[in-house]
Write a protein that binds this DNA or RNA. Sequence first.
DNA 1: AGAATAGTGTCTCTCAGACACTATCAG
DNA 2: CTGATAGTGTCTGAGAGACACTATTCT
Lengths: 237, 237
Amino acid sequence: MSTTQDEFLQSYDANRFVRPNSSVDVVIFTVINGTLQVLLVQRPQHPFKDCWALVGGFVDTAQDSMLEDTAKRKLVAKTGVQTPYLEQYATIGNNTRDPRGWSITTVYFALLPPQHTLQSAAWFPITDNAVAVPLAFDHAILLAGCLARLRQKVLYTALPVHLMGETFTLSDLQKVYELIVGKPLEAKSFRRRLLGADILCATDATRHEGGGRPAQLYRLKPDHTTHFFVRTLEGSA
Amino acid sequence: MSTTQDEFLQSYDANRFVRPNSSVDVVIFTVINGTLQVLLVQRPQHPFKDCWALVGGFVDTAQDSMLEDTAKRKLVAKTGVQTPYLEQYATIGNNTRDPRGWSITTVYFALLPPQHTLQSAAWFPITDNAVAVPLAFDHAILLAGCLARLRQKVLYTALPVHLMGETFTLSDLQKVYELIVGKPLEAKSFRRRLLGADILCATDATRHEGGGRPAQLYRLKPDHTTHFFVRTLEGSA
DNA sequence: AGAATAGTGTCTCTCAGACACTATCAG
DNA sequence: CTGATAGTGTCTGAGAGACACTATTCT
């Protein structure tokens, strides 16, 4: 009766259970023209043909050696960006989200700096936790979930630095924070907080914009690990 | 060339991609004798036959209508507990964690009060972020990850209330916090924090233990949503 | 000068840490 | 009484919010 592990693997029936579909979806955020935007693609085939959807696709066991590879592959294919901020949000699996049957998707979200070229995809501004077009599958829910996570984390992390370009001013960064938090922040507290985090370094350049005092340009310190503040901004959960 | 969505679904080839295995693992924590413990089962079959492993198994598309159902099913089967605190930790998928090939597991963790009956499973104390026996697959890593998440969340949430029985004293609760945080906490700050959270209510009973002043017994308020404190305890990341 | 944007000085408030103190029991 | 455990009073310090103030550029 007893078999070795090798013998077992030889005779292993990989289909004793019906395997659900495994896919990855990536909610790709950026800021354009002072608006938070999400990258969407138009589905080329059924189900939800021609409907807008999150960037995503099936795990390809031939190409991807881990789940995050699937996310990165999809991200690079649509944006050309190799190493953005990428975080796993959650995994949703059920028998209702996909008309083809039981389906599991692991949802990531990415934060992109403003410049990049797109491949058959388009930015959609986010208003009221949603985009203006209907989305395929449960993607509207996935988007709302990622947004909630982002909004929450912005209250106690420096995540928005990943939405900035190479160099930026503290005013720029504050505007992005305000965009995500959804309300104005005090400039003094904001500067104290961000400069105290020790993740930015001043460049030797300034930027002059709109007739006021020129602003110091900062860049992210090279060893930029995600910073967690010890207190949350007001408006926390 | 154009087909309707119904026609498409009729002819849909579910096996165009090789589907990875989808499983769920649940890291079930409890506190026994002043020690944090995790529930393990001994694997009845290959791979890793007779090795200890986390509670888990394949998603059964016939039984489970969503991913969390798989977690709950496994949890009930081993502990009889229906509705503990259950949180999705993360999803790990790669081609190295299971000798049978590409495999995805969604990891949940559960917090259980001290009493329950076990079905072919055993508690193992956690010391130095691990248990004393080797674990199957990458389960040691999954355990360490959940532990890290738990340790982190204890600094700014009231999660440990889910490890307590029906009624408990603040000293009891503080001991559980200290167990997880790994260092002693100030009684005064602790009481201020927990009582200020407005999630506990005093019962009309006290408990007298060990020759000192009797302690007030508390219970969780019925509408117990997870409380987030606005500041973290010291020792934060 | 005045408008506009960048950046500071400094007060208040909240809440965690510290620790000495009081309270209530058994023996 | 002493020892043990429960629980409080209250000071300090860190960091967020508020807001008046200064700084540097433009026209």
